[in-house]
Design a binder for these strands. Structure first.
Length: 512
RNA sequence: GGUCCGUUCGUCUAGGGGUUAGGACGUAUCCCUUUCACGGAUAAAACACGGGUUCGAUUCCCGUACGGACUACCA
């Protein structure tokens, strides 16, 4: 049997997609690409009480930003639609009923109060696992304990009911996880999970099996939090008679908080000092805002590269991979087993690497836009020079303008700490002379010329250039640190440099 | 509590019965240099513990500890 590989990402639209989910989507995408298969997206919105407006659009936009858009989805349907479980609602009941007929599921009429009472009773009796299972179901109101007539009457009269799976009393359930190997669980530790809810919607357990089967899913790649319920899913495939096409499972290690205490969750928001979402998100109910990696200045390729390496590695020492290269190198058996702590420092490093790979014209867009937002227009040529100056020094695109503003606006004040340490009579002497030299200079003024001129000026004054260099920087930029000064001079031009020097000479006092 | 999963430098990880246990991020120092970065070099830094198996275990097995997930008519 050689089926085309089909994998799916199946988020539930209950808020912003968090990065763990993004990584799951990425691994699914990479696996599909690697295997020449299809990556699809299915919206798991069977819990209408948790519906959050905008969440689905958020998922779509996030995947688009990263360039891992699914080939089949609610907005690009393939042959297996609909791709929203709420729209598939009518088809689930027949499958649940099929299970009831086969004796693998049953109706249950217990109210939530009765369920609560059962749990309390069992807890009081010190039962280790208070759950609805092969033992306790005999004491509950269901089609196994009620007479056939009463069940019919209840169903006919519209009594609310759920359909539960009839978990076998003792059976060893085995599953061969692609990441973890054989996992064995005894059915006696599993409970009679609800398959159909009283509102007529299926639970995740039923819906994901039915949909994966109908959609021809060959591999289920999902988070480790699903491992405990995987045996139930295997059983369901068996009950349906779909074992021969049951997908292979791969349960991904969890993304943990940096301190190692628990998995990263949506609720962490920005509390950890970094975003947990790909894009900015405002909760429509509480109005709470959370920042996203995109808005923080992370480049999609860098973010993807970083995310891919959280739990997977290519087995060699390469670190930088484009999406295509990731797909080419990807394999499930190189995914680690243990949970992965999130390290934002590495994400920044990746961003720096990708920023440096970009061309000046690409990067100029950021600089020009940010400057414009501050009401400053930067000519193309100057912008290009400014990018070259800063490219090796920035982490985020927004750093370009932040770190080069001083070029577009002469300093009005000076870093006092640097001034007190470095500003002196020698510096003033050299600068005064240099300004005069600049005023009379009409050859092409580049970094080399600027430096040669400065050196000869200092020499003429009998002062070592190194002694006053910091003061020169202070006078022209207002600060003691920054990119290559002579390059800055070249961008500024002789007139501007001279003007700034004269301003500094008039406004900085020499401490004796 | 129960079930399941996991455990190599601070972090992401490679490796695998005999290795100086490798790389990357981060950290520190040095070099380069007009500063800060970049770059280069160097350094500190790990096989959770206890039993087996074995000539030999970080690697295989079993326990223990620790961590995590799950334990809803949520996904």
């Amino acid at each position: 049997m050689n089926r085309e590989v089909r994998v799916r990402f199946a988020p539930s639209p209950t808020g912003a997609l968090h990065i763990g989910g993004v990584r799951t989507a990425l691994y699914n995408y990479l696996f599909a690409k690697k295997m020449g298969g299809k990556f699809l997206l299915r919206i798991e919105d069977t819990d209408q009480t948790r519906f959050v407006p905008g969440a689905e659009e958020y998922i779509k936009e996030s995947l688009e930003w990263l360039g891992i858009s699914p080939e089949e989805s609610p907005w690009h349907p393939g042959d297996c639609g609909p791709y929203r479980q709420s729209e598939r609602k009518p088809m689930y009941m027949q499958y649940a009923l099929d299970l009831v007929e086969k004796g693998h599921a049953y109706y249950a009429f217990d109210t939530s109060e009765e369920l609560e009472a059962m749990r309390e009773r069992l807890t009081a009796a010190r039962v280790v696992q208070p759950q609805y299972n092969s033992i306790t179901r005999t004491q509950m109101k269901n089609s196994l304990t009620l007479s056939e007539d009463e069940v019919k009457t209840r169903l006919a009269s519209g009594d609310p009911y759920v359909i539960r799976v009839k978990m076998p009393r003792k059976e060893e359930v085995r599953l061969n996880d692609m990441i973890r190997g054989w996992v064995m669980v005894h059915s006696s530790t599993l409970d009679d999970k609800v398959l159909m809810k009283s509102d007529g919607m299926p639970t995740y357990h039923l819906a994901n099996i039915v949909d994966d089967h109908l959609m021809g899913i060959t591999h289920v790649i999902r988070g480790e939090e699903w491992l405990p319920s995987a045996p139930l899913h295997v059983l369901l495939y068996r009950f349906f008679g779909w074992e021969d096409t049951m997908p292979q499972f791969a349960h991904l290690p969890l993304l943990l908080k940096p301190d190692g205490n628990g998995k990263l969750s949506k609720r962490d928001g920005d509390k950890l000092g970094f975003p947990v979402f790909p894009l900015n998100w405002t909760d429509p109910f509480s109005g709470e805002k959370s920042s996203g990696f995109r808005e923080q200045g992370y480049l999609p390729d860098a973010f993807l590269n970083f995310l891919a390496f959280l739990g997977w590695n290519p087995g060699d020492e390469r670190e930088i991979f484009s999406l295509e290269e990731l797909a080419e190198a990807f394999s499930i058996d190189r995914i680690g087993k243990s949970g992965t702590k999130f390290d934002i420092a590495k994400a920044k490093w990746y961003n720096e690497q990708y920023l440096r790979l970009k061309t000046n014209p690409e990067l100029m867009q950021y600089l020009i836009a940010d400057a414009k937002a501050d009401g400053v227009d930067i000519p193309i040529e100057k912008a290009n020079a400014m990018i070259s100056l800063l490219k090796e020094r920035v982490t985020f695109p927004s750093d370009f303008w932040r770190d080069s503003k001083f070029i577009m606006a002469a300093p009005k004040e000076f870093d006092q700490e640097v001034a007190s340490k470095k500003w002196n009579a020698d510096a003033a002497k050299v600068l005064g002379a240099y300004a005069t030299v600049l005023d009379g200079f009409d050859s092409p003024f580049d970094a080399v010329a600027a430096k040669a001129l400065l050196e000869s000026t200092a020499e003429a004054e009998g002062i070592k250039l190194g002694k006053v260099m910091q003061a020169v920087r202070l006078a022209v930029t207002g600060s003691g640190a920054g990119p290559d000064l002579m390059e800055v001079f070249a961008i500024l031009g002789t007139a501007e440099v001279s003007k700034r020097i004269r301003f500094a000479l008039n406004n900085l006092t020499v401490v004796a």
